[in-house]
Design a protein around this nucleic acid. Structure first.
Length: 937
RNA sequence: GGGCACUUAGCUCAGCGGUAGAGCACUACCUUGACAUGGUAGGGGUCAGAGGUUCGAUCCCUCUAGUGCCCA
């Protein structure tokens, strides 16, 4: 016998063991060799990761699909694995070494350090996979892969070498996003823009407020960004010009002053050490004389002469219209510098400290320290005009959180523009589809403006770049050192010593190969043939660029086929106020805690039920509790079945059922199966879950199980046997329907039923998804619908008339047709039980002093034992009439509108007519009830 | 500045050209032989605002206000 409540913590590990025993999630099962393949590759979680809400949602949805398709008989491969996550992992291990007060990575050297990371990976790398198991994920665990395992590394080398040989990977010296904390380059995507706004204000010439270096320093320590500094750059060789200071209404200058300097505005004073020019807009009248004269500027502090150039990059509307140009430390300036042949002077080292190029007193200073000093020095020289607060965005490293420096270095790049073309075409042609579709716009926007992808990282943990350098710097790219050596020797015609490139590849480089590298590529494996392209990718919108787009590019280039047919993009899980969950806000909900509290099934069901397309999920714990209760409800329905000996019969055939109520539930089952199936096929997870929920709780538990109680308690043996079998059958269908969402409880109940019934052929996870047709019977639906409605109306009336819950009332169906009498008698026991009646009678006329119900075409009367509160009943009836008349008014208005009758759809008109007739009939009968009541009163 | 969403019950959210829905919360009654993690009944909404299209708009279109996200 089942316990009174279900205890997820007890059941879950046991069920997991059962799945394992049955090898339930194994792809390529012999008996399914002829079956259609179905494949999803998991978005590989970072080995450093632990399960958060986003993972829980992402993997629940994948699992729902996999379990659904597996039950539909397909040969399902849910390919699992983890990502080596370069920076993240290196960071974790380094931090751990620091905590243990072990020597740092630079001290122990690369080889030892990488060894340590591997050790760490062996120890802790499976944490997140075990957490996925707890969630119930039905991955083929026997095929776990890792982005740095042997096979995948081979794929990475092959791809790098191929792309290099095709000229699609190249080395280039340009500005990169440099992370001074990790001392590595990062890609554009790993940079987050953070808004900054300062508060410091100062103006030269304000006698009341002299420059206060202390105060500025304090403000900048708090927030180094958000200030605009106006510097006076003296003109070289004592040059002067007339600078306009006032304008008339037409914008013509009306007053001038003679200046021997030009004012530039900047948010980054310290970079002035590397300035090699000043730019003004070529059409800016204010500076035209300077351009014309070819005037130069003598850069303060460094005392360098630099040109003033005309470039459209300068916006006359912004600041002073003149900008300093630092080609080595700003992306825009880099371009300006290239256009005008300006020198690139790098003034920062790899930790963003001022380097040896700068005057001695600044060397070694941190960039923000240097900023304060430079400003103070300008002020001291009378070259600081003003400081004002400004709003601007500052680039930060997404992992390190520090301000990123544009820095001039040699890095490896992928020519993404070429690779993007076929990847764009595949979405355009519908060979692959975003669900919901609107994400393709985001995808196109980015892909059509794609920039070179910087793939080298100055880290130790990752795929080391397969490039070797000869002493003269000539590079040789090959899959291993021997091949590189051959290339070099052939090139130089003599044995040549080679040194391997120190850098590793961006983590996303290997992730981009995931859909085919995990299936065995570059080898021509059976898996690759069978499961590529995969069916669907399930992921969040935040990695469309990082991952989806790049898989698309690599898949098209190397497999000449899309990596997946559908791309289901799900929402972000937020807290109940709609805020992103973050540790600093303290609003993080831990899926593992929710699993401990409510069970994995409840969490899964919640996430699925809330996964409506195109909307974020604002998750509230009480939602999970509600669905935990749903699981309990199911559990108790099964318990009811068990107590009533509703055991499965192998020969049960739902098409041969006799009892109306049983035929009805069979039809409802068919309907529910259809709804859930169609919703899942269309990735409408919330609708699928909603349909299953409503069927199980609202139809099966609330009505069917209640309706059959009199039959089970009765002595019609044939009916009892049929009903028991129907309950067992329906419950089986329910377990199947719910299994993709709630795998644990359903598997448990599936197994439990065996204790009394026929043996199962397989675990539920491998059972067959139901498909029915022909079980829906309109007549039976109508009949049971009538019963349900009558019971509801009686219950409603009882409450309204304050009839004590325990009191039994007689029900009168006056002037009932023979058909109605037969129907009422057929269900008399059920109706009596559920509506708490004391029998049904069928006189010709309605009794006096009874409350009256009008349900559809049935009029029913409840004599309230002479104690009826006439006034209350009159009021109630009048309210009913009022409501019916209001509805009738709407119908009349519709139907009397010639436009409606002429133009509306036939069904809409027919519906309105039926409704009108129904309402008129109901009003008549309600009025009759009032007349009778008044006779009594 | 460019783009994409969103605004529906007290809260969290579905829905959708033809009578407004769920969960939670709330009110009243009920320990009825599956379930109090429950049952029954109920209260609660000019579907952000203004226009337009339509026989008919919460739904489609435009604008306005507010909110969120992405990109520069």
């Amino acid at each position: 016998m089942l316990d009174k409540t279900f205890k997820p913590a007890e059941i879950e590990p046991r069920i997991r063991a059962e799945w394992e025993r049955a090898d339930a999630f194994k792809a390529g099962r012999a008996e399914r060799s002829e079956a259609q393949p179905y494949c999803i590759v998991i978005p590989p979680p970072n080995v450093t990761g632990s399960l958060h809400m986003g993972h829980a949602l992402n993997n629940t949805l994948q699992d729902v699909l996999c379990r659904f398709e597996r039950m539909r008989g397909k040969d399902v491969l849910w390919q699992v694995g983890t990502d080596h996550a370069g920076i993240a992992t290196q960071m974790v291990v380094e931090r751990q070494m620091m905590e243990r007060q072990e020597p740092g990575r630079r001290e122990i050297g690369r080889e030892k350090f990488v060894e340590k990371v591997w050790e760490w990976k062996e120890e802790s790398g499976s944490t997140i996979l075990n957490q996925l198991k707890r969630l119930g994920a039905s991955c083929d665990w026997s095929r776990e892969r890792f982005t740095m395992d042997e096979g995948l590394s081979k794929a990475v080398l092959k791809v790098f070498v191929s792309l290099y040989n095709e000229g699609l990977i190249y080395k280039d010296k340009r500005l990169v996003n440099w992370d001074p904390k990790f001392q590595t380059a990062i890609s554009d995507l790993e940079v987050v823009q953070v808004d900054a706004r300062g508060a410091f204000e100062w103006q030269d010439g304000d006698a009341e407020k002299p420059f206060d270096g202390e105060a500025l320093s304090k403000a900048l320590t708090k927030n180094p960004s958000g200030q605009m500094y106006h510097f006076r750059y003296p003109l070289a060789d004592g040059h002067t010009y007339q600078h306009p200071t006032a304008f008339d209404d037409d914008g013509k200058p009306t007053a001038f002053e003679t200046r021997d300097y030009i004012v530039v505005a900047t948010t980054r004073p310290e970079t002035m050490l590397g300035d090699t020019g000043v730019a003004v807009h070529p059409d800016d009248a204010r500076y035209a004389p300077l351009l014309k004269a070819g005037a130069k500027v003598r850069l303060p502090i460094v005392d360098r002469e630099i040109p003033i150039v005309g470039d459209e990059h300068s916006d006359p509307e912004k600041g002073t219209g003149a900008v300093k140009i630092t080609p080595a430390h700003d992306f825009n300036d880099f371009e300006v510098g290239k256009r005008h042949g300006l020198e690139q002077i790098n003034v920062l080292d790899d930790r963003a400290r001022i380097n040896e190029v700068a005057p001695a007193e600044y060397r070694g200073l941190d960039r923000f320290e240097a900023r304060k000093r430079i400003v103070a020095d300008f002020a001291a020289q009378g070259l600081l005009e003003k400081i004002e607060p400004t709003s601007h965005t500052v680039p930060h490293g997404d992992r390190s959180g520090v301000v990123i420096e544009p820095w001039l270095t040699d890095q490896w790049y992928v020519n993404a523009e070429v690779l993007a073309k076929p990847a764009i075409a595949m979405i355009e042609s519908g060979k692959a589809n975003f669900v919901p579709k609107n994400w393709e716009k985001t995808y196109f926007e980015w892909m059509r403006n794609i920039q070179p992808w910087c793939i080298s990282r100055q880290l130790w943990w990752g795929h080391q770049i397969p490039a070797w350098y000869a002493p003269d710097g000539k590079v040789f790219v090959a899959e291993d050192e021997a091949h590189a050596q051959n290339l070099a020797d052939a090139h130089f015609g003599a044995p040549t010593p080679l040194k391997r490139d120190e850098d590793v590849l961006d983590t996303w480089f290997s992730s981009a190969l995931w859909p085919f590298s995990t299936l065995g590529w570059p080898d021509d494996t059976t898996e690759l043939k069978r499961y590529y392209p995969t069916n669907v990718l399930v992921t969040g919108f935040d990695i469309i660029f990082f991952w989806v787009a790049r898989m698309m590019m690599m898949g098209m280039h190397f497999m000449e086929e899309v990596p997946f047919r559908d791309i289901y993009i799900h929402a972000l899980v937020r807290d109940e106020k709609g805020q992103k969950m973050s540790k600093s806000k303290g609003n993080v909900m831990d899926p593992l805690v929710l699993i401990d509290t409510y069970g994995a099934d409840a969490l899964r069901f919640t996430l699925t039920a809330m996964a409506a397309q195109g909307r974020d999920i604002k998750l509230a714990a009480n939602r999970v509790e509600g669905y935990r209760n749903f699981a309990t409800k199911l559990w108790n329905a099964a318990r009811f079945a068990e107590m009533n000996e509703c055991v499965r019969r192998r020969d049960f055939d739902p098409t041969t059922i006799k009892e109306p109520v049983n035929r009805w539930i069979a039809g409802e089952t068919e309907r529910a199966v259809r709804e859930v199936t169609e919703a899942l096929e269309a990735y409408r997870f919330n609708e699928a879950a909603g349909a299953a929920y409503e069927f199980v709780w609202g139809v099966f538990c609330d009505w069917y199980l209640e309706l059959i109680k009199p039959i089970l308690a009765g002595d019609d043996e044939r009916a009892v046997a049929e009903t028991r079998a129907t309950v067992a059958w329906t419950l089986d269908q329910i377990l199947k329907l719910l299994h993709p969402f709630m795998p644990y409880i359903t598997e448990e109940l599936w197994a439990h039923a065996v204790e009394h019934g026929e043996r199962r052929e397989s675990v539920l996870a491998l059972s067959r998804w139901p498909t029915f047709s022909g079980l829906i019977d309109a007549e039976v639906d109508e009949e049971i619908g009538w019963v349900v409605r009558l019971i509801s109306e009686i219950r409603s009336l009882r409450t309204e008339m304050n009839v004590p819950a325990g009191a039994k009332l007689p029900l009168v169906l006056p002037g009932a047709s023979a058909e109605l009498v037969a129907r009422a008698k057929r269900h008399e026991e059920t109706i009596s039980r559920l509506a708490r009646l004391d029998g049904i009678s069928f006189p010709d006329a309605a009794p006096k002093g009874a409350a009256v119900i009008v349900a559809g075409d049935t009029t029913a009367a409840l004599p309230l034992g002479g104690v009826i509160d006439t006034a209350a009943e009159l009021k109630r009836l009048e309210r009913e009439i009022e409501k019916a008349e209001s509805d009738l008014g709407k119908m009349d208005a519709k139907l009397s509108n010639p436009q409606f009758v002429a133009k509306a759809k036939e069904e809409a008109i027919e519906e309105a007519r039926e409704r009108k007739a129904e309402l008129e009939d109901a009003i008549q009968r309600l009025q009759a009830a009032i007349r009778r009541l008044e006779q009594v009163g």
